[in-house]
Design a binder for these strands. Structure first.
Length: 280
DNA sequence: CCAAGGCCTGAATG
DNA sequence: ACATTCAGGCCTT
């Protein structure tokens, strides 16, 4: 198979980008907003209601991107090991809520909470004789009681979820429109939603708003930078303050270039596998 | 601008 | 058993 069109479905889904996915025999089934996707081993997509989507970003010139981000031996190793790993372009609202839920949490729990949210507030559909719950629309979450949202296991994030849903419902923020804006503007916009800081914003922007220079800096990525790039990306404070995050991101884009987000995904995947962390 | 403390929750650790 | 810690952070003092 040609390198440029190969998609490693398994590793792409199991890399902390999406959560509402499960495997059934050879295929992966997942929720993407108001659609259900079935992805075959080769990356062929069949969907419940044919929403237009480029889920695996086939439009990206992956060879060029890989060449562009391969700036050091660590990245080159990660890219080689996880060839076919892709950035996923998912439904923006689902992505927004997913990463609000993700803060101060872990993959297992995020998945659990999101499944509860879909089951409780999303529409039930049948696809290939299987039952699915679509991701709830903004209106539904906006009008939900905080206590109802809390019952999904999200704790103090319940209010963030409700507020974020209201913000989208009232079109104070137009997610689709943000795809056309630049990195700085989008980040400023969505960081106004409470529950969304730098890291969550970068995830939302990278995985749903077409901002490939986003480089989510969580504990893992900080650890990776310390371990493999000693000195180059030094933190000047003990904790990652807002200012430090910004400074660090500038250095990162200077090093990895405009597709830094892809580098992040390869590095993240490699390090998590090294530590045998569980995925979905 | 930075540091410290609090926050839901459940799995892991002592 | 039971308490404490920790996990893909963020918000408030």
């Amino acid at each position: 198979m040609e390198k440029s069109c190969f998609i490693d479905v398994e590793n792409s889904i199991n890399s902390g980008q999406v959560f509402l996915w499960k495997k059934n025999k050879e295929n992966w089934y997942g929720i993407d907003g108001q659609d259900v996707l079935k992805v075959s081993k080769s990356g062929r997509i069949k969907s419940y209601n044919n929403t237009k989507t480029d889920f695996f970003r086939k439009r990206d010139d992956i060879d060029r991107i890989i060449k562009s981000i391969s700036k050091d031996s660590t990245t080159r190793k990660a890219v080689k090991r996880y060839l076919g790993l892709r950035i996923i372009e998912q439904d923006p609202f689902q992505c927004l809520i997913s990463f609000i839920v993700s803060s101060n949490s872990n993959i297992q729990k995020i998945k659990n909470s999101l499944e509860n949210i879909s089951r409780k507030f999303g529409n039930r559909v049948e696809f290939e004789n299987k039952e699915f719950f679509l991701f709830p629309k903004p209106e539904r979450l906006a009008k939900a009681a905080i206590s109802e949202i809390k019952s999904c296991g999200v704790g103090y994030r319940a209010k963030f979820i409700k507020d974020a849903a209201s913000t989208v419902m009232l079109k104070k923020i137009d997610l689709e429109n943000l795809k056309k804006s630049n990195y700085q503007d989008v980040k400023r916009e969505i960081c106004q939603i409470s529950g969304i800081g730098n890291k969550v914003a970068d995830c939302v922007m990278l995985f749903s708003l077409d901002k490939l220079e986003s480089f989510p800096l969580d504990r893992w990525m900080i650890r990776i930078l310390e371990r493999y790039y000693s000195g180059r990306f030094e933190l000047e404070t003990k904790t990652v303050t807002e200012k430090q995050y910004e400074v660090l991101h500038e250095k990162i884009v200077k090093h990895f270039g405009p597709y830094a987000g892809y580098a992040q995904q390869f590095l993240f995947k490699m390090e998590r596998e090294n530590y045998q962390k569980k995925w979905l």
